[in-house]
Amino acid sequence: MNLDNRLTVQKVLTITLLFNLLVMGLKIFVGVSTGSLSLTADALHSVTDSANNILGLVANRFSSPLPDREYPYGHQKFEALGALGIAAFLGIACFEILKGVIDRVIQGTGVVKVSQLELWILLIVLGINIFVAFTERAVGKRIMSAILIADAKHTMSDVWITITVIGGLIGVWFGYQWLDIVLALPVAMLVFWSGWSIVKENLPWLADKIAIAPEIIHKIALSVPGVVNCHDIASRGVIGHQVFVEMHLIVDALDVEQAHWITEEVEHRIQEKFHPVRVVIHVEPPTYKVDSITFGDKKFN
């Protein structure tokens, strides 16, 4: 059984896009009116927020978990690709922020002017970002959506960036002009860290890294009456999202029908623990002997 939550993802991304466009407009307005480098960098980060939402909507359109003729294992890796696209946008934003800092240092620090009204506008922006980040992350974890979780992290980085920028502008308000350019550096680092975290979480999925320890699958299989042993166990995917399991199962059965019911019970127990999961089992006779349980594994005792 596959869980298709694309309509929920689409709805959340669309609402988030509208909020991000509002936030981006407010930051650009305040950034231009104050001349703040750190806020301009933050506004640039918000531009990528909106671009990420659009990218996410496109990726979500093609990330159906349902198999078809062209993609018999479903299309869910498109969602992971979309998450990596978000990481790429974050990398671009980080580069542009650092470039702006270098240009400001070389060309000399300009004067930044901040009013109470502009600080209040930024506090409203901060509240919107916090609401969007926590809502998006909660929904993403509930439906196990890589694209929503990745976008929530991106938005959460925007929260910390905005807090940093507001702190810097308050310092500028009290006459510490150098704070604006100094605080632009941690903004760039936060952006980079968000992108790196997304890459680390999604590359294993795309590279088919093991999803379930073979020892766990081995234990479940041997708990079924009639199973003598199992080996060449392989798994990939994301637990709670979609997992694929393959194994060779040695069964003590009198005929094909009995062997079938044994494998059905093994599939049922694995499905019960790691739903949703698709299991493929190659049946072997009880006389077949093997000690290893997985590829490249040492002898299993």
Rank of each mutant, 00 (worst) to 15 (best):
V30C: 00
V58G: 12
P72F: 06
E70W: 03
F78M: 08
L22R: 05
P72V: 06
G31W: 05
N52D: 07
L3H: 06
H75L: 07
H75Y: 10
E79G: 00
L21Q: 04
K11S: 05
Q76R: 08
V9G: 09
M24R: 10
P67M: 06
T34S: 03
S46P: 12
S63L: 03
I86K: 02
A51H: 12
H75V: 00
T34D: 01
N53Y: 05
L39A: 01
F62E: 13
S64Q: 07
A88Y: 01
G82F: 10
A83R: 04
N52R: 05
H75R: 08
P65V: 00
N20R: 09
V47I: 15
L18H: 10
D68V: 04
A80F: 05
A83E: 03
R69I: 10
I92C: 07
F62P: 13
A51V: 14
G74L: 02
Y73L: 15
L13A: 13
P65L: 00
A87Y: 01
S38D: 07
K27W: 00
N52A: 15
H45K: 03
L39W: 01
S63V: 09
F29E: 10
I54Q: 05
A41G: 09
D4F: 01
S36G: 08
A80P: 09
T34I: 00
A51E: 14
A93H: 06
R61W: 06
G31V: 04
L3M: 11
L55K: 03
H75G: 02
L84D: 02
P65W: 03
L37H: 11
V47D: 08
A88W: 04
S64K: 11
G74K: 00
G85V: 09
F62M: 11
P65T: 03
K11A: 06
I28R: 05
E70D: 12
S36P: 09
A59L: 11
V23F: 09
F19E: 10
I54K: 04
N20D: 15
I15T: 11
A59R: 07
S46F: 04
A80K: 06
R61Q: 10
L81C: 13
N53F: 03
L13K: 11
L37W: 07
P65G: 07
K27I: 00
E79T: 04
Y73Q: 14
L22K: 13
P67N: 09
L81I: 14
L26R: 05
L66C: 02
L17Q: 07
R61V: 04
G82V: 08
D4M: 05
F89L: 15
K27C: 03
L22I: 13
I54H: 07
N5Y: 10
L26A: 15
E79D: 01
K11V: 00
A51G: 13
L17E: 12
G74H: 05
N60K: 05
Y71C: 02
S36I: 01
T16I: 11
V12N: 02
H45C: 11
V23D: 12
S33N: 11
I15N: 14
G91E: 15
F19M: 10
L90P: 07
N52H: 05
P72T: 02
F19C: 14
G74Y: 02
A51D: 14
K11W: 03
L21A: 11
T14V: 02
D42C: 02
L44T: 01
I54F: 11
K77F: 12
T40P: 01
L22A: 14
K77Q: 15
L37D: 13
T8I: 05
S63H: 08
